[in-house]
Computed example of a mutant assay.
Amino acid sequence: MDKQTINTLMEHAREAVKKAYCPYSHFPVGAALLTEDGKIYTGVNVENVSFGATNCAERSAIYTAVSEGYRPGFIKAIAVAGETDDFLTPCSICRQVLVEMAGPDTPVYLTRKDQEIYQTSVRELVPMAFQSLNM
């Protein structure tokens, strides 16, 4: 993927951070995913006082695209942004959703508050992924 596309995707993720609803943790996260057909979907973390009802930014973006008809394999890349000192990685639940909705070699771009970008992949985030109920 070219650098301009990566930067554009990350800009969408960084803009999404500003819309996060995180009154309890005060830990805003934004995500932006690029579909195989070129659309960008963003998501933010949305907290709830029960915490168990909280949804992460990555899943918010993925579920929005799924609600518009996308099915597994539609994600070309995903970017995750926050105001952290180290690169902000998806939680384990989001990683498992990525295993089902993206290919193992799908690029995952992570950033931190200095805006440096780190590239990894779904496979690197989940090396021994649970992929089937028929195992």
Rank of each mutant, 00 (worst) to 15 (best):
E68F: 11
G82L: 07
I78K: 03
Y41E: 02
N45D: 07
Y41C: 05
N48T: 14
G73R: 02
A57S: 12
V80F: 05
V49L: 14
R59A: 10
S50D: 12
T54P: 07
P72L: 10
I75Y: 03
G43N: 06
R59D: 11
I78Y: 01
G82T: 01
Y63I: 09
Y70I: 08
E47C: 09
C56W: 11
A77Q: 04
F51E: 14
N55Q: 15
C56Y: 12
G52L: 11
G73W: 03
E68R: 11
V80R: 04
P72C: 08
A65K: 00
V66P: 00
A61L: 03
A53P: 08
V80T: 08
R71W: 01
Y41Q: 01
G52V: 14
K39M: 11
I75K: 00
A77W: 05
D85E: 15
G73F: 04
A57P: 03
V49I: 15
A61I: 04
G52F: 15
F51Q: 15
C56E: 14
S50L: 14
S50W: 09
V66W: 06
A79Y: 08
A79H: 02
D37L: 08
T64P: 02
I40P: 06
K76M: 04
T54H: 10
Y63Q: 14
T64Y: 06
R59Q: 15
G52I: 13
V44A: 07
A65H: 00
D85F: 09
S60I: 04
A81H: 10
R71Y: 07
S60M: 14
T54G: 11
A65E: 06
I40D: 03
K39A: 06
G43W: 05
N48H: 15
